[in-house]
């Protein structure tokens, strides 16, 4: 049971060599590998945490965007509603304006028709009055209407006032002495000469005459020279009757009814 000192020294060396070898081949690789694994796990955990945070941030951002989007949607909806309201109002106004225009047009048309009708009525009345007068005069007084109307016209020329006579003269002078005589019926030679002589007597000169028959002059005679006109016709007598007819037509509320229908 002795100590072999060579063995002791050799064992010390052996042990130190073993320590070095074990450090190199066992502890270092194992510990560094464990460290690596711990780092890797820590890294993975950190990564997971980062990803979780990122996911949360993204979710928050998404929620925020969603809110903004909702707000924008609401704003746009409100805007669209407002615009639609404005447009609706505009369309309503347009429609009302158009309706008003149409109504005005209709009223105008009705008025025109009314006027047309009045005119036709007037003409018919004139013609009727003319025919009746003619017949009454012929039957009762045995008087020719045309002849009598020429006589009245001649009398009118003879009784013309001085100032009117001057105006007529001036007009005649500027028209180089030509007078146009229009009548609703054909004037006989005698009648023509009667008118001529009356005019010559009134003017004191002998102008040139031109005789024309015009159906527009209902039962009347017209003497014109450069803007000056001297006339007699049945129209004047009819005018009062015409007025009364117009008054009676106005009492018929045709347009009023239509107006209510449009509204």
């Amino acid at each position: 049971m002795q100590i072999n000192w060579f063995t002791v020294i050799a064992q010390i060396l052996n042990f130190l060599v073993l320590v070095w070898l074990m450090k190199r081949y066992l502890y270092k690789p194992i510990l560094s590998m464990i460290d690596d694994r711990e780092k890797k796990i820590a890294g993975q955990l950190a990564d997971a945490k980062t990803k979780k945070n990122e996911a949360k941030a993204e979710q928050d951002e998404f929620n925020k965007k969603n809110e903004v989007f909702e707000q924008q949607k609401k704003d746009m909806m409100d805007k669209a509603t407002a615009e639609a309201g404005v447009l609706s109002q505009k369309l309503q106004d347009d429609a009302k304006t158009k309706a008003k225009n149409l109504q005005d047009k209709l009223e105008k048309t009705v008025q025109e028709q009314q006027a047309d009708l009045n005119k036709q009525l007037q003409q018919k009345t004139e013609q009727g009055v003319f025919a009746i007068t003619k017949k009454v005069l012929a039957d009762l007084a045995d008087v020719n209407f045309e002849e009598q109307s020429v006589n009245v016209f001649v009398k009118q020329i003879s009784n013309i006032k001085d100032d009117e006579k001057d105006l007529f003269k001036k007009a005649l002078l500027s028209a180089s002495g030509s007078i146009l005589v229009q009548s609703a019926f054909d004037l006989s030679e005698k009648q023509q000469s009667g008118i001529k002589s009356a005019v010559i007597k009134m003017l004191g000169s002998n102008p040139s005459f031109q005789f024309k028959t015009s159906t527009a002059l209902l039962g009347g005679i017209e003497l014109t020279t450069n803007g000056y006109k001297l006339a007699w016709s049945i129209t004047e007598y009819v005018s009062s009757f015409e007025k009364s007819i117009a008054a009676s037509n106005q009492q018929i509320p045709v347009t009023e009814k239509k107006h209510h229908a449009v509204k």
Partner: peptide
């Protein structure tokens, strides 16, 4: 061996 244990104890 006492030599080995001595060596270890010396270490």
């Amino acid at each position: 061996s006492l030599s080995t244990t001595t060596a270890l104890a010396l270490c």
